[in-house]
Amino acid sequence: MSDQNSHEHPSVATYLKIAVILTVVTAVEVALYYVPEFGLLAPTLLVLSAAKFALVVMFYMHLKPDNKLFTNIFWPPLLLATGVILALMALLGNW
């Protein structure tokens, strides 16, 4: 039987680059928090947070090089959870 598990993991250099990006993005997020009267704070922070989330999932959790079945197992409940958050906020009128 072929071993579908033996995918190519990212290199140590890639892991380090991702760590640097995560650190810089987090620093930017915290800096934005202290910018007074920054009108687009919430959407900007959500986009940056989603980018960090995607980087960890794709490279540290190996979803990018791994078998697509794992991606297909992960995304539906993630989308459902996001839908639950949006639906409950809408139902309780707390946008």
Binding site: F74, L80, L88
Partner: peptide, 15 residues
Amino acid sequence: CLLFGSLIATYLSYE
């Protein structure tokens, strides 16, 4: 994801 999604939804709904 569903567990934490529901907890985050609860937090945001009552925020």
